[in-house]
């Protein structure tokens, strides 16, 4: 179960450094963060390796779930790696890790989100090696499910 990840990509007509700023500055995060019908009334970001972030996710029913974690790698304006915990880890399961890349494209930049589950310390250390397998695996899973 260690090799579990998903990748979502989106090309946006805005430069990478602008997107990096939107992704890391609370005044912007509160303006855009979250999926449909979720708002972000509060965001806290300590943008340094080991620094913490907290994002409030207000759900349609009025309840708030905090997504939080700490930064593992920061390469402004191209790449961010951070842990991702939803609410209370004891309730929602093992922590996961998110890698966001902002890759320059002719029309702007492509945002690539890789969201992985962290099975154990060994996985955490060798995550680079696992990515290719994850992508192949995701395809296999999709085919198996289809």
């Amino acid at each position: 179960m260690a090799d579990l990840a998903l990748v979502v990509r989106r090309t946006i007509r805005a430069p990478a450094d602008h997107l990096f700023a939107l992704w890391t500055e609370p005044r912007h995060l509160t303006a855009w963060w979250g999926p449909a019908h979720v708002t972000c009334p509060e965001a806290q970001v300590d943008l340094r390796v080991g620094g913490a972030y907290r994002l409030a996710n207000r759900l349609p029913d009025g309840s708030t779930v905090w997504i939080h974690g700490e930064f593992l790698e920061i390469e402004r304006p191209r790449r961010l790696v951070y842990t991702w915990v939803v609410g209370d880890v004891a309730v929602y399961g093992a922590p996961t890790r998110v890698t966001v890349r902002f890759e320059p494209r002719p029309e702007g930049a492509e945002v690539v989100v890789v969201h992985e589950r962290i099975a154990d310390e060994a996985t955490r250390d060798s995550h680079q090696a696992g990515w290719r397998g994850c992508l192949e695996g995701l395809q296999a899973l999709a085919e198996a499910a289809g």
Binding site: V8, R10, I12, W23, W32, W33, P35, A36, V113
Partner: peptide, 13 residues
């Protein structure tokens, strides 16, 4: 993530 990146795209652009 698909919906979150939609929201980012709208705001960023």
């Amino acid at each position: 993530w698909t919906q979150t990146l939609d929201a980012l795209a709208a705001y960023a652009e």
